[in-house]
């Protein structure tokens, strides 16, 4: 039971999608989207990363469920680090300083 063989065609289609997304994000950065530009840039980055992880890194074809768990856990823990750190930084200004 060797690993799933992904066809060359799939790889090339994914690569074309990655290149297209890269052109899109580079082009959109030249247009003012206001508050949305960061959101859009990060959304495109996430899609690109997902394409690489799911296809190039074979996670989509992985029959070991644990690989999915490991990948999701990695990003979930990164989320914990970023989110809980930001609870501090985003709420620091809420409470005024006595005497000011």
């Amino acid at each position: 039971m060797a690993e799933h063989v992904v066809s060359r065609k799939t790889y090339i289609v994914v690569w074309i999608a990655l290149m297209a997304l890269m052109v899109l994000t580079a082009g959109l950065s030249r247009i003012d989207l206001g508050e949305w530009s960061t959101v859009v840039a990060m959304a495109i980055a996430v899609i690109k990363a997902l394409l690489v992880i799911l296809f190039f890194m074979h996670v989509r074809y992985e029959d070991q469920k644990i690989t999915w768990v490991v990948v999701i856990a990695g990003f979930f823990w990164l989320g914990i680090l970023l989110a809980l750190s930001m609870t501090d930084y985003l709420s620091r200004g809420y409470l005024g300083v006595a005497g000011h």
């Binding site: 690993e3 990948v71 990695g74 823990w77 990164l78 970023l82």
Partner: peptide, 25 residues
């Protein structure tokens, strides 16, 4: 081998993660 590399990459995510946290803050 596959699982080992994935677990190692999770370590790498957290290694870069400290820098991403600094970037975000």
């Amino acid at each position: 081998a596959t699982l080992g590399m994935w677990v190692f990459l999770v370590t790498e995510i957290m290694f870069f993660g400290g820098l991403f946290a600094a970037y975000l803050v």
